[in-house]
Design a protein around this nucleic acid. Structure first.
Length: 649
RNA sequence: GCCGACGUAGCUCAGCGGUAGAGCAACGGUUUCGUAAACCGUAGGUCGUGGGUUCAAAUCCCACUGUCGGCUCCA
């Protein structure tokens, strides 16, 4: 051990400082703290960035050693598992060329080009077996800075690793690194061009599973090589993997297409075409209830409801620009009296027509037009998905026309409405502000005004939000809200956009205090998005167990035997008079059978009536979740359920 | 659109070269019941569509169509 004269000092998470020999790595730091920590460390967080355990540290670095207890360590684990998977694939399929293999939420994937072979589910098992071997071999994973980029390039080319060659060429000035997999004798058995970071060795990999194969394209470009992608996941503990697979199962259980069959919610038909939804009575009831609520809250907030036609002359979409920039998502023209017409893909031009039907004064503003507007858009067949991705859908669309001064309070009002609706349905959410992208129209002042108003409104409400720099659409900055459902999945939620384009294209103006015409400011916003997607998502969020105010059937009356039918009918009528959705199930099936059926249909209340209830003008209440909750007076039950519905709980 | 898997009774699925099966649902009867499936019986499919191979095709091959998992796109 030669004593190096220079020392460096690093800071630990608890604020304490530690001196190390210059050139010391995070591993050395761990060792200097305790053997136990060293044994558990798999990487380090250096100045907030995840790094290899054997990263040399520099003077002043803030270092946190990562062990499997730290969530950040999963990134290392998954990235390394991806490499092991790629190594396994190349062992089994020597002709396979590797593309990229990043980590994603809950796992990772790796893309391959495997000439002459298509991966099958059986292959996945084989690959898993091979991975087991690589893990058992406990290969070291070493970072290696490429000293001679051209030499390495030539090597990649010689190996036919054209994707890696392309990547290396691109990153040649970024101090590119290889990660080498080395066996016990220090011999490199595999390598991958990779920025890292990685685990120190493959032996640390424990619980992983390959999930599915699918197609992809090199760099996501369908003009380029077709690749095969393997999706997989990796965890530190078998129990975590188990829990994750359980979560997938739970998601499967909640799948709205599956629940639709059980609860008779919606259908699509070959004879009609894909992506076109038929709402059955049960789901139509849910939707209608949501729409009633939606209309109520909009009226209360000064929105005016409008309706616009489903087809329009092409001229409209030429003015709006949709034909030019959105044409490939629009259905082809139909001929009406020698004029081309189109099915509407957007509601905005229609709302603008209403605005422009007369001269507007600043005194009229803001004008808030809202419509449950049905639109049709061409979606490529492969992307259609149940109710979540369709070709015809109804947006809860609104366009607000206002002055620049009114913009901020209007945004604030929208955010308030969003909060009310999302809270009612039990979603939590996060907000994102998307700012001006590179390719965009409008002046700097316009963008500053619009973006500023969005930001100011969120700040005024003390909302947490993240900024997605350059993530706006070309004509507008926007606020996107992401929803989190009952099992923590993310959904695309409400969106608010300040449009800098259409007011100009349509010459949307108002007469100001000064008697001059000014261009109006226009805001697009959708809260629920589309009724199809929202209701589809809601089915999964509630797992088909709709709260009482939304439930297709809120209560069912179950007479014990035929002699109770008359009384059961009386109870049924009483509920119906209260405008409750109630059914009477007096079929000659056993009471157990009828209860089971109501349970499986997720009916909130089952009202069992027999001799005792008949004698006491009462009902025996069975709740779908709590079971038999006892007998109460019919009038009392009516009050309770009516209140529950009114509270939307 | 592209890659891959799949399409058998209303639903869930078995059969995978040799005369189409089960459970549930439906229908008819019996049963009149106290909190998650009473009993007996009946009916139901040109095996997604079209073509090919074969003495013979639900089964093998091709095309189309739809669904599913991804890619991609999302004014």
């Amino acid at each position: 051990m030669s004593q190096v004269s220079t020392q460096i000092t690093v800071t630990l998470p608890d604020g304490s400082r530690r001196s190390l020999d210059a050139g010391a790595t995070a591993a050395d730091l761990a060792r200097s703290i305790s053997q136990g920590l060293f044994a558990r460390s798999v990487g380090a967080l250096v100045n907030g960035e995840i790094r290899d355990l054997y990263t040399p540290l520099a003077e002043g670095d803030a270092v946190k050693l990562l062990t499997p207890d730290d969530p950040e360590s999963l990134e290392l684990l998954r990235h390394s598992t991806a490499h092991v998977m790629a190594e396994a694939v190349q062992r089994l399929f020597p002709q396979a060329k590797i593309a990229i293999g990043p980590t994603i939420a809950d796992g990772f994937y790796y893309d391959f080009d495997i000439p002459g072979h298509t991966l099958s589910p059986e292959d996945l098992e084989m690959i898993e077996e091979e991975m087991k071997r690589i893990v058992r071999e406990d290969q070291r994973i070493c970072r290696y800075q490429i000293p001679d980029v051209d030499g390495q390039l030539a090597e990649f080319v010689r190996q036919g690793e054209k994707f890696k060659a392309e990547l290396l060429e691109e990153h040649r000035n970024d101090s590119p690194t290889l990660y080498l997999m080395q066996d016990k004798n220090g011999k490199t058995v595999w390598n991958d061009l990779c920025r890292g970071p990685h685990l120190p060795s493959t032996g640390l990999i424990k619980a992983y599973k390959l999930l599915k194969v699918s197609g992809s394209y090199w760099r996501g470009d369908e003009g380029r090589d077709k690749l095969q992608r393997i999706y997989a996941t990796s965890w530190w503990k078998a129990a975590d993997l188990e829990a994750y697979l359980k979560r997938l199962e739970e998601a499967e259980r909640r799948d709205h297409r599956r629940l639709s069959r059980q609860l008779d919610l919606f259908s699509v038909h070959d004879e009609v075409g894909p992506g076109l939804i038929f709402w059955h009575p049960n789901l139509a009831t849910v939707r209608a209830t949501i729409e009633d609520f939606w209309r109520e809250v909009h009226r209360k907030r000064g929105y005016q409801l409008v309706f616009t036609p489903h087809i329009a002359s092409e001229k409209l979409y030429e003015i709006s620009g949709h034909l030019q920039s959105y044409g490939e998502n629009m259905y082809s023209a139909m001929d009406i009296d020698d004029q081309p017409y189109r099915v509407k893909p957007m509601n905005c031009p229609g709302h603008i027509m209403i605005y422009k039907s007369r001269l507007r004064s600043y005194r009229d503003l803001p004008l808030r037009f809202a419509e449950l507007g049905t639109v049709y858009r061409y979606e490529r067949s492969g992307v259609l998905h149940g109710m979540l991705r369709v070709r015809g859908f109804t947006q809860d669309d609104s366009h607000i026309f206002c002055t620049p001064e009114q913009l901020e309070p209007e945004i604030n009002g929208i955010l308030d409405l969003i909060d009310l609706l999302m809270t009612t349905f039990g979603y939590t959410y996060k907000a994102y502000l998307s700012t001006r992208p590179e390719k965009s129209i409008g002046t700097d002042e316009e963008w500053a005004m619009a973006t500023g108003a969005l930001e100011a409104a969120m700040k005024a409400r003390q909302m947490d939000y993240q900024v997605d720099e350059g993530g706006g659409v070309f004509y507008a900055p926007k606020i996107d809200i992401k929803l989190y459902d009952a099992i923590g999945r993310e959904w695309q939620g409400p969106t608010v956009q300040v449009d800098l384009n259409l007011p100009r294209r349509f010459d949307v103006t108002y007469v100001g205090e000064d008697g001059e015409r000014h261009q109006a400011v226009m805001v697009h916003r959708a809260v629920l998005g589309s009724m199809e997607r929202f209701c589809g998502g809601l089915i999964e969020h509630y797992a088909g167990v709709f709260p009482t105010w939304l439930a297709p059937v809120q209560a069912t009356v179950l007479p014990i035997s035929d002699r109770h039918q008359e009384y059961a009918r009386q109870v049924f009528e009483k509920l119906r008079e209260r405008d409750l959705r109630v059914t009477l199930d007096d079929r000659s099936e056993t009471i157990n059978y009828r209860i089971r059926e109501a349970q499986m249909q997720q009916v909130p209340y089952m009202l069992v009536v027999g001799d005792k209830e008949q004698a006491a003008d009462s009902v025996s209440v069975r709740h779908r979740r709590d079971g038999d909750v006892g007998t109460i007076k019919t009038a009392e039950f009516l009050d309770k359920i009516t209140q529950e519905v009114a509270q939307r709980s």
